[in-house]
């Protein structure tokens, strides 16, 4: 049976990403381990992304609170505003927005960096130098992305809640103590844990797609731009698909 053009391309791409992921797993478990480069990537991917993700988190918390406030007042449940906002942020908006910002910043950066290294033969030079580029470039970046996004997401959620606290206090007064009480009266373990777990998958997807697109970049500088762009687009789509799956799974487990 002949598969139509776009369908064949999609299946080929999916197969290639699956093979690439297989190589990643093999290289991750086999020695030698590039610890120093992994730590460097954690710094670049994690620490350097914190200001952007923190700022978007803060604005998200503030804006969401200000937008929800009139509606909550009209229903006479203004006091529940912190609980409502925190639930939205922790369960859904925080992890997804952080992942999308992360895909835009880190996915494109990894795609462009590896793409540029590919077209300027730096990856081949690494291979000739006796360093496995898959291990040195891909494993370190994917692991760093997988580990850093959950941390960034937790920090972003915390900063969002601070933004929400300021949002509440723009028009009325609420003490920090009361705000925290309100937040943790509704948030529990089954809200926080699934949202943290899914960010590991988001981080992994962003890392692997960015590396795959960059590693197999071709057609010179135009190809590098295309790698960076398609890394962001594909990883953003995958984030939404994974989020959908995560919601279904938590629903099946009775956590929603």
């Amino acid at each position: 049976m002949k598969i139509p053009g776009p369908g064949e391309e999609f299946l080929n791409e999916t197969g290639a990403i699956a093979r690439f992921t297989g190589s990643f797993v093999r290289e991750t478990v086999s020695p030698r381990y590039e610890i120093k480069e992994f730590i460097r990537q954690c710094y670049l991917i994690g620490y350097k992304s914190l200001p952007l993700i923190g700022l978007t988190g803060f604005i998200m918390g503030l804006v969401l609170t200000m937008q929800l406030r009139p509606t909550m007042i009209s229903y006479g449940v203004e006091a529940k505003l912190p609980a409502m906002v925190s639930l939205s942020i922790v369960r859904e908006i925080g992890p997804v927005i952080s992942a999308l910002i992360f895909a835009g910043k880190i996915g494109s950066s990894i795609g462009a960096q590896l793409g540029s290294m590919r077209v300027t033969e730096q990856i081949d030079a690494m291979d000739v130098s006796g360093t496995n580029p898959m291990k040195f470039l891909v494993v370190t970046r994917v692991l760093a992305a997988t580990l850093m996004l959950p941390i960034l997401s937790i920090l972003s959620d915390t900063i969002s809640l601070y933004g929400s606290f300021l949002g509440v206090n723009i028009r009325s007064h609420m003490s920090v103590h009361l705000f925290i009480n309100q937040v943790f009266s509704i948030l529990n373990f089954t809200d926080i844990l699934p949202s943290i777990i899914k960010t590991f998958f988001f981080g992994f997807a962003i890392g692997i797609v960015g590396c795959y697109k960059g590693y197999y970049s071709k057609n010179g500088t135009e190809g590098v731009g295309h790698s960076a762009n398609s890394a962001v687009v594909l990883s953003s789509v995958i984030v939404f698909i994974l989020d959908l799956l995560a919601v279904q799974i938590t629903d099946l487990l009775g956590y929603n």
Binding site: S116, M117, T120, E121, Q122, D124, A125, M126, V128, S129, G130, T131
Partner: peptide, 24 residues
């Protein structure tokens, strides 16, 4: 192997570029 495009690691200094083959 000397590459046509030189293939120097542009995120590393010259010292680090030369150290790279030795590390392995």
């Amino acid at each position: 192997f000397l590459f046509q495009s030189n293939a120097l690691y542009d995120s590393m200094t010259i010292r680090e570029n030369l150290e790279f083959p030795m590390r392995r």
